[in-house]
Amino acid sequence: MTSDHAVDIDRHVRVYISVFVALMVLTVITVAISRLHLSVPLAVTVALVVAIVKGSLVACYFMHLISEKKLIYAVLAVTAAFFVVLLALPVVTHSNGYWIPE
């Protein structure tokens, strides 16, 4: 193991600790916001934004997605495309089917 490598890992570890703290804080924040009893659309938006930030932190740093190979990005891009289609499923089901609201 070269010392370069070891320094690299030390830097990694410092990042992990900061991400850990951020995740803890964000968890507390999202619980605190839910106490405010915001209107449903707003509450959903806020909770989703916080969850996406937390999820991205985990994916980018713990799962090293921030510095991954192109191939992995390609696989995930394809997955993301189909994931979006999947989430459109409720829209498809509930759509009344008219372009213009009656």
């Binding site: 968890t27 999202t30 839910s34 909770a47 916080v50 999820g55």
Partner: peptide, 9 residues
């Protein structure tokens, strides 16, 4: 994602 979805909303 489960946590806010099930517990908070």
């Amino acid at each position: 994602f489960l946590f806010p979805t099930l517990y908070l909303l």
